[in-house]
Design a protein around this nucleic acid. Sequence first.
DNA 1: TAGATAATTAGCTAATCATCTAAATGATGT
DNA 2: ACATCATTTAGATGATTAGCTAATTATCTA
Lengths: 102, 102
Amino acid sequence: MNKVFKALSDPTRRHVLQLLRDKPMSAGELAEHFAVSKPTMSAHFAVLREADLVDATKDGKSVIYRLRLSVLEDALLAFTGAIGLELKPDETHTNNKETHND
Amino acid sequence: MNKVFKALSDPTRRHVLQLLRDKPMSAGELAEHFAVSKPTMSAHFAVLREADLVDATKDGKSVIYRLRLSVLEDALLAFTGAIGLELKPDETHTNNKETHND
DNA sequence: TAGATAATTAGCTAATCATCTAAATGATGT
DNA sequence: ACATCATTTAGATGATTAGCTAATTATCTA
């Protein structure tokens, strides 16, 4: 979980996850979206892999990255759970600050 | 939002937020829970303040920190929204991977 | 087998970070 | 005014990080 939060602390890496939300993409394809060098992107991918937020599979010359949504979900849930924060996607927010105490 | 995620990338700071979930606490009271020096904790508090995750008010000799839950909520919501991840606290998870596309 | 292409590793630098001790600030109480 | 207590600031250090270019590895194709 610590690795997940470390991985999420960089905006480039968060953006990579966002791109991966739609479909799996190759390293090069992902890299095209950013203004940094390929090796720099490769390092970011390594951090995401290390956190298990993405899955890498080799396909010929390319490496295809896939988002591991459940890992992200679990980490976020563990954290929001520990804080006592219920994250409703919509619903103009319910005050559940003390709910855990009842 | 970037500052929020940067702030969350350190386990000590996440733990501070967790302690603050129950009640506002002074810097010293918070510091007691950790094995690092007061100045180190003070630096962590500054990062949390900078990210607006906590609110600091002076009360006599002490500084009382309060969790700003809504800021955390907003950042997390912005991110999960961008990823297309719906975070349900319980409910053994619904597969909503492609939901955004319909 | 060469050459081209995709990605990673190696090696470096500059910046940021977490940590420490010592000193400064600020408020309270004698 | 002075001592004390709570916290922050200053200043230093070692570790980690994000970035780069150049070199390497792996795969494909002519």
